[in-house]
């Protein structure tokens, strides 16, 4: 057997093994994130596993303790099913009710203990509408009188 052929066969085997291993790893680790519905459908599957959940912050659920730097809120997709999230850390600037977020952490019983809180932002870029701003100011000025 020529040396060249040996290299070719050996190389193919090595690359094959690397690809097989990486696909296996990728399937386990790179699920980008789950949704609350998927977690709530089979909660036992996600016990004691580090995972990411992407959803919207439920309106009216945000409790921010500025002294203790503790943040708690519910994440939801449809407003019906939600998961309470606890996060020890500062509140990101763009964190708002109704905003898309991705939390990373572990499920602890019913609630989710987040170690990282990321904020998704939309692809919309808008500036303040001067007309509506003027109108707002106008109404404010009436109120005060």
């Amino acid at each position: 057997m020529k040396t060249r052929n040996k290299f070719f066969i050996g190389g193919t085997v090595i690359i094959g093994i690397i690809i097989a291993f990486s696909i296996q790893e990728l399937q386990e680790k790179t699920i980008f994130f789950y949704t609350p519905a998927e977690i709530l459908a089979t909660p036992s599957k996600f016990e004691n596993k580090t995972l990411r959940i992407g959803a919207l912050v439920q309106t009216g659920s945000v409790i921010w303790n500025a002294k203790g730097i503790q943040l708690s809120f519910n994440i939801t997709e449809n407003g019906k099913e939600f998961i309470p999230v606890f996060f020890n850390g500062s509140k990101p600037d763009l964190f708002r009710e109704g905003q898309g977020v991705v939390v990373e952490g572990k499920m602890n019983g019913e609630k989710f203990e987040a170690t990282q809180l990321l904020v998704k932002h939309s692809e919309e870029y808008r500036v303040e509408d001067k007309h509506s701003k003027n109108k707002e100011n106008y109404y404010k000025s009436i109120k005060f009188q």
């Binding site: 763009l94 870029y125 500036v127 303040e128």
Partner: peptide
């Protein structure tokens, strides 16, 4: 250019 509303 004015500031963007959400991100500033």
């Amino acid at each position: 250019t004015p500031l963007e509303i959400n991100q500033g």
